[in-house]
């Protein structure tokens, strides 16, 4: 069974990255959700990000 087929028969559990209001809406409906306290990687420094990405390869 493909993951999309099983999804339709599973409980939706959400990881939310970005707008916190989306987490609040899901939480209000009793949906299991974890909000990521996201911030730009490497302090927004593009050169540092590119080095980090190379390391993660």
């Amino acid at each position: 069974m493909k993951p999309i087929d099983s999804l339709f028969n599973e409980e939706v559990k959400v990881i939310n990255l970005g707008i916190p209001a989306f987490r609040d809406d899901l939480d209000e409906q009793g949906v299991e959700v974890v909000h990521v306290d996201w911030s730009p990687p490497a302090g927004g420094n593009k050169k540092m990000q590119s080095l980090l990405n190379q390391l993660k390869g």
Binding site: P3, L7, E10, E11, V12, K13, V14, I15, N16, L17, G18, I19, F22, R23, D24, D27, E32, V33, V34, H35, V36, D37, W38, S39, P40
Partner: peptide
């Protein structure tokens, strides 16, 4: 009602929510 701790990465969030099957992304 929401967990007071918000993890800093998707990986850590997945550890906290076993069976997470949907990621909603609204970052830049």
């Amino acid at each position: 009602g929401v967990s007071a701790y918000n993890p800093p990465t998707q990986e850590r969030a997945a550890d906290m929510l076993p069976g997470a099957n949907m990621v909603l992304i609204s970052v830049p």
